[in-house]
Design a protein around this nucleic acid. Sequence first.
DNA 1: CGACGTGTTGAGTGTGATCAACATCTGTGG
DNA 2: CCACAGATGTTGATCACACTCAACACGTCG
Lengths: 236, 236
Amino acid sequence: MCALRQMSVFRAFEGRELDFVEWFKMGELEVDQGSTVLVEGHNSPHLYTLLEGWAFRYKMLEDGRRQILSFILPGDFVGLQGPVLKEMQHSVEAASRVRLCVFPRERLWKLYEKHPALSHDLVWLATRGERIVDENLLSVGRRSAAERVSFLAVHLFKRCDALGLTQGQSLDLPITQRHFADALGLSLVHTNKTLRRLERNGFLSWKGSKMSFKALGKLKELSGFDESEESRRPII
Amino acid sequence: MCALRQMSVFRAFEGRELDFVEWFKMGELEVDQGSTVLVEGHNSPHLYTLLEGWAFRYKMLEDGRRQILSFILPGDFVGLQGPVLKEMQHSVEAASRVRLCVFPRERLWKLYEKHPALSHDLVWLATRGERIVDENLLSVGRRSAAERVSFLAVHLFKRCDALGLTQGQSLDLPITQRHFADALGLSLVHTNKTLRRLERNGFLSWKGSKMSFKALGKLKELSGFDESEESRRPII
DNA sequence: CGACGTGTTGAGTGTGATCAACATCTGTGG
DNA sequence: CCACAGATGTTGATCACACTCAACACGTCG
């Protein structure tokens, strides 16, 4: 049984559900940093739950412009968009070395059939994915560079904090400024300048892979971060 | 039974499913143009399928900046994000007079329990919502103003075309340039200038509520529109 | 060692924002 | 009937935020 499942962020399973998910689970997949887990325009017979590491969903334009749609952290479900269309509409890449729980897509019908509560969880997970993209779109569409950078930093801190992946006021980021830029719809250079300005103003620092939050309150205020605590969430 | 359901875009129901949905359905709701159907920060005990008219999902910042997240057209399911959190994370407003099919949220468990195929449809609808926001985020994050405007125009045309809501190469838009601007993360003025430039170049025109596509191919090319035909989709 | 990925900074440019004015068209009340 | 306010669309002038280009520092890895 996954270690993740025991964390207090996640809802507990009933016995039958646990048995089912163990049957549903096909195995584990480990993937190196930089590998592409799912490719836009292709079909994948698998679904995944990310167990360890960071990944991200993205889309690219023909000329190479890239937009990161959302970051995928432990407990997140990956690949739901697939069952639906013939092809994936986005790609997923591992930002760090990543461990995934693999489910065969054809067993999904069994889940719907036998486990209504899990069906609901699946809907929940799907809408949560959309919620995160919604927030990101609000940032990219309507916030200034400083607001966007602050928002994303706080967003990632909060998500990691809920998973016990923070150390006090700091956070280990397995991503580069390029990822930040591509998630925020900013250029790399301007992202860097904005980060440096936030650092000079004493809001945060980002050295190597460590991001330290010097003034979380100020960052929340600047970015208009919405503190909507979420209750225990499902994990599959 | 809804007239919508008989359209060829939508998948057909089995008898039992149809009976169920008729029980699931609580009634219909008609709402005037400009009314807010769901309010961010509040809880709604209802789910909806939009039957007629246009609506849109949006989020606002405290100072009034608004980002439209996606447009809601007939057949789209509304309100799924609610069951999940205590509160809606976005608002929904009617762009035209709108007719909605209303479902009480508490009957949802019965759907999960008795109708695995409908559970799957629900997941499908949820992921479709995310897919649309993904595409929008790619636009807003990485495309130029002319590309964005073209993309949204083509996107709306395609969706309406599938629903039989177009007249040849033109389309009745119950929205204003302000909606366009807020969906695209552009200022109203710049949206207008971009539209006028597209018109001068003979790509499209938008007079009153009628948008005419003079060169659909050129618009697709300019915007990088991805022609992924989707198969029959579910409707609930 | 050189190549490459990443981060940093400055200079100059440009896309899109803001401000402002005006044209229509609507509905409303006098 | 007209006067008026309000919503919407249009255009020009100016501004600024963010982009591009360029150069360099630093690390790691072959």
